[in-house]
Design a protein around this nucleic acid. Structure first.
Lengths: 212, 212
DNA sequence: CGTCATCTTGATTACGCTCAAGCTCCGTGG
DNA sequence: CCACGGAGCTTGAGCGTAATCAAGATGACG
């Protein structure tokens, strides 16, 4: 977020255009690409976490998705990004140039990887869609925690994002998210130890609540 | 919807598995593939219109998208369909077998076409997501009519789907959709001539209302 | 022309939003 | 080491939008 970090990142990104595959470091809140920026690069999270965000003219905000180590992002059909991407915490991001990849030795392999990533992304987006369209606030928040636990594995879960990001992902307000978290905890479905750490208390009840 | 039509379609679909590229006719409401069915086929609308639907255990329904002549559908990453697909009206659908396409002469061309279709689909789904997450009922309904007019072109627009389908696409109830249509018409933004035909009355106001 | 599905309208309810305080957790400086 | 300050989170009260429940109106089709 400091001027130095931003300057460093800009310089590194410029390099990435000539040397695809370069890894760039971003600090919390730092922008990786902007809405309406050209889409000639493809990204992969090496460490940390990234969110994609869309801001409309009224300032309403929607988060497209969160990406963790190993995930590709920045895949788009059109010539311009419809969402921007920002790091959630200290993160390392690998950058590939599309046109360079097209000249790779194993073109077929590269293309298959990109297609698979795109299709997986589509699938996740459809799940997200289902959630936004037809779930209650309570179900949305429960799904969010459940999915996170699924992805991360292990017992104790850590939230890399704040309440506002959760709200903008779920199509809710920050207050509603907070209330639902309190409610779920009161019912023993989850236990929070600090506002960014939790454990699933009742996995069965949780899964039932989330069930498609 | 009659037993004969269903029987015919089943038989035709069985054929399509051995003869990819075959065109099958479906009647209104008829199922093209089901949720949890295997995903070895890819489809393209030749004429008519198709919707993809997801039904959860409580009977809540979400429509993924509507597809018209020329559109591909049925593209998925996993081995099972997460949505089902049904014809909205008398429709012709072309069916391709994935594994057969992989052996085509112009494999690269085929793959590019599929990737492009997938990426386009992803983009549409993201727009849909944005709408579900952050738009009001009024804006959702206006967007729906606006997009339809954009896609179809021309002056007089025809709705191939009923109010329930619109509601399930927009994450609203049928009553709310109806009220918003009445409201938009009262304000002169659109004019309905029968419940499935309309013209955009004030394109400027409409675009403003829809603006991302 | 009658029947049934679809669509519209009305009255009421409820879920999530808004506005407004507090609280908690950290980092900073006295 | 504790006081101060600020950001982020929680809680509360009241409101508004869209859902629900319930009749009617319209329209398509036999």
């Amino acid at each position: 977020m400091t001027a130095q970090i931003v300057t460093f990142a800009r310089a590194a990104q410029a390099d990435a255009r000539s040397f695809p595959g370069a890894t760039i470091a971003y600090g919390p809140g730092e922008e990786i690409y902007a809405q309406a920026e050209e889409t000639d690069l493809i990204y992969r999270v090496t460490s940390g976490a990234v969110r994609t965000t869309r801001l409309d003219s009224d300032g309403r905000r929607q988060i497209g998705d969160f990406y963790y180590a190993g995930d590709f992002f920045g895949l788009e059909a059109g010539p311009e990004h419809r969402f921007s991407a920002e790091a959630l915490c200290e993160s390392q991001v690998q950058v590939f140039k599309r046109t360079t990849l097209a000249m790779a030795d194993d073109t077929a392999g590269v293309e298959r990887t990109i297609w698979t990533a795109t299709a997986r992304e589509l699938e996740r987006t459809r799940e997200h869609l289902m959630m936004l369209g037809r779930k209650t606030a309570r179900e949305k928040v429960a799904s969010f925690l459940h999915d996170l636990a699924d992805r991360q594995g292990g017992e104790v879960q850590t939230l890399v994002m704040g309440r506002q990001d959760m709200a903008d992902y779920l199509g809710l307000t920050i207050e509603t998210v907070s209330r639902m978290l309190t409610q779920l905890q009161a019912e023993g479905l989850v236990t929070f130890t600090g506002c960014r750490q939790f454990r699933i208390g009742n996995r069965q009840a949780m899964t039932r609540l989330v069930a498609a």
